[in-house]
Structure formats: structure tokens, C-alpha cells
């Protein structure tokens, strides 16, 4: 199963920053700010933090803080660390003395489950395990695991049976949780909070999901480019660029981890059918925070296309801030056509 873990990477479908000036320190010479970039991994995905600051030491210090925070939350939410809180929860069926982060994120999962009528479900891990085990034993078998096994696994999926009690989280029998559809967003938000608290601005955090803190330090906003796979085989414009002003952007795509060569079976599952949904090539969501963006992109990707618009509307009303509805989605279908939805 390990080989899946390694390859099971969310595709970075968004490339941070455009333009030559972005890459070279000297280009922002009007100010004494210098660009610093950290690269590493978070929850098995490539991660980076880009920040602008005049002082090298300060920048290093901030990065060290951020890395410790990522490390802390990974030890909570990672499926790849046997001793993480999440793995202990899955292994034992319960978790005593959960951190406030765990309680909070599982509550968010429940909230997004309700919002998407179950299309977003953190308890799909038994399905993932079934597929992973099947394709590990039968590489190239395009038909996937037997239907009865899928049905049996599907019966274990129900986020409403995750019981968040005081001081303890309890799962229903046989249940397992994955937070891969939301934890990157959550960690991104926490890192941004941390840096903001320490007085940072002009930061772009990319931990699988993106979130920008202010602009790029020269008065311009961060700009992200939705890559070619998303922006269309119709060739119109090739790429799509989106400014990211104190916002977050998340993308869900089946291409991230494929179980088979055809791409019919991948790491995202529709809890209703037990299959990998194939409505979209990718879904990108822009929201005020990365947790929402991450969960919503997963939910829209998984649910039938007819429910996308209503989900966006509900999400918008749910995260209303000062009366401003601000979620946006770019849905790229299998044919490569991108549709824009505003919540």
C-alpha cells in the first residue's frame, strides 16, 4: 500500500505566481524587500511558502515557526504517520483527549457534509483502502474491486456516525476517517494565522492549497494561474489567471492519484455510489479561507453536476462575512471546458 501513499499526491494544478519579476529578487528593487521561498512537504504533498521581507533572519525565523506548525498539525491529521492522532483514531475506533484542532476540523467535516448532502464525507477511507488494496494486488485490472466488496465498504461510510464528545472522539464500527479532502486547507489557514499574528504580510502559503496574505510586497496582488489541464483543450487562451487577494484557492482533480492507467479509478470517491466520480477533470474553488475552499472543491468534484450550483449558494450563505458572499468555482469537465460559478 505504501506505493500508493507515495504517488498519491494531489496534483498541483495551480502554479503560484506569474511573470519573470516574481522569480527574481532584484525585480522588486523599488523596495528593500527580498523574496524568500521555502519548499518542503506537508501531508505527503509538495509545499512551499513564499514571503517578502527585508531581513533574512526574520524570514528564516518565520519559516521555522511555520514549519513547526505544519509539523504539529501533520502529527494530528496525517494518514502517513502511524502515530498521528488520526491514525490512532482509525486504528482504535476512538481518540481520547483530542486536540482542539482535531475537534474543530472534524466539526468542520460534519458541517461540510451537511452542506453537500453527504457529497463531502470524511469517512470514505474504507473505500480508499479497498481500492488501494485491490489495485496493489491486481495492477491493470480496469474493472476495480468486486461490487459486493464496494457495497460492503460503502456501508461503513457515514460522517454522521463520527461522534465528537467531550474529551473523546468515537467512530462507528469499522469506520475510518481521511482528512485529505480538507486538512491541507486547514493547515494552510493555521499557518497563515500564525504568520499574520507575528506581523507578517506579503505571504503566499501553498500546502497543497493556496492562501495569500496581502499582496506581493510591491503593491500587486498575488496572481495564480490555473494550469493548462484545467484551462482548456479548446485552446482559448490556454491558461486562466486569477488574482488572489487575501483569499484561498483549492483544486480537486482526479489526476492527483490514479489507481489505474485509464484514470477511471482515483483517490476521490462518491459516498453515494462508492465509485470515483468522473464528472470533472478538475474543480477549483476560491474562498476567504483555505478550509472552505478545500472542502468545497472536494464536495463539488464528488457530487453530481446538477448539485454544484446549489452547493455554491449554500456555501456562500454559510460563510457570509459582513454580508458579502464570496465563493467562486471553476469547473473543468472531462472535455476540458471550464465553467465559472459564483456563490
Amino acid at each position: 500500500m505504501k506505493q500508493w501513499n507515495k504517488s498519491r499526491r494531489r496534483a498541483l494544478t495551480v502554479i503560484a505566481g506569474i511573470g519573470a519579476g516574481f522569480l527574481m529578487p532584484g525585480a522588486v528593487c523599488a523596495t528593500p524587500l527580498r523574496r524568500y521561498e521555502w519548499r518542503g512537504t506537508a501531508l505527503g504533498a509538495e509545499a512551499s511558502i513564499i514571503l517578502y521581507h527585508a531581513d533574512h533572519k526574520e524570514a528564516e525565523h518565520a519559516v521555522r515557526r511555520a514549519v513547526l506548525e505544519i509539523e504539529r498539525l501533520e502529527s494530528e491529521f496525517s494518514l502517513y504517520r502511524a502515530e498521528s492522532a488520526l491514525c490512532r483514531l482509525n486504528r482504535n475506533g476512538f481518540l481520547d483527549a483530542p486536540s482542539l484542532d482535531m475537534v474543530r476540523l472534524l466539526s468542520e467535516c460534519r458541517r461540510f457534509g451537511d452542506l453537500s448532502d453527504g457529497a463531502f464525507d470524511a469517512s470514505v477511507q474504507p473505500l480508499w483502502r479497498l481500492y488501494a488494496d485491490h489495485f496493489a494486488g491486481h495492477p491493470g485490472d480496469g474493472s476495480g474491486p468486486p461490487r459486493t466488496a464496494v457495497e460492503a465498504a460503502r456501508l461503513l461510510v457515514d460522517y454522521r456516525r463520527v461522534d465528537i464528545r467531550e474529551g473523546r472522539i468515537v467512530l462507528g464500527r469499522g469506520m475510518e476517517i481521511t482528512l485529505n479532502g480538507i486538512a491541507q486547507g486547514y493547515i494552510t489557514d493555521r499557518v497563515v494565522d500564525l504568520l499574520r499574528r507575528h506581523g507578517w504580510s506579503n505571504v503566499l502559503v501553498n500546502l497543497g492549497e493556496l492562501r495569500a496574505l496581502d499582496g506581493r510586497g510591491n503593491g500587486n496582488p498575488w496572481v495564480v494561474m490555473l494550469d493548462g489541464a484545467l484551462a482548456g483543450s479548446d485552446g482559448a487562451g490556454g491558461t486562466l489567471t486569477v488574482p488572489l487577494d487575501n483569499r484561498a484557492m483549492a483544486t480537486s482533480a482526479g489526476s492527483g492519484t490514479r489507481f489505474d492507467s485509464s484514470g477511471r479509478h482515483h483517490h476521490l470517491f462518491d459516498p453515494a455510489s462508492g465509485d470515483s466520480p468522473g464528472h470533472y477533470r478538475a474543480v477549483s474553488v476560491s474562498a476567504p479561507d483555505a478550509t472552505t475552499a478545500d472542502a468545497l472543491s472536494t464536495a463539488i468534484f464528488t457530487a453530481p453536476p446538477a448539485r454544484a450550483a446549489s452547493m455554491m449558494t449554500r456555501a456562500a450563505s454559510m460563510i457570509t462575512r459582513a454580508g458579502r458572499a464570496d465563493v467562486a468555482a471553476w469547473l473543468t469537465d472531462a472535455g476540458g471546458r471550464t465553467k465559472f460559478l459564483k456563490g
Binding site: L68, E69, E71, R72, A97, S99, L100, D101, E166
Partner: peptide, 24 residues
Amino acid sequence: TGYIRSGLFDRIQLVQGSSTIRLS
């Protein structure tokens, strides 16, 4: 009031570096 039953304070936690410390 949650701590009275669960023995764990559910509104505060201590964070240092990469460790999270629950207060009981």
C-alpha cells in the same frame, strides 16, 4: 463546563513548536 465530565478543558490548549498540549 465540558471539563467537569470529560476531565479535559475543551476551550483552551497549549501549543509549543510542533506539540499540542491539552490541559486536564
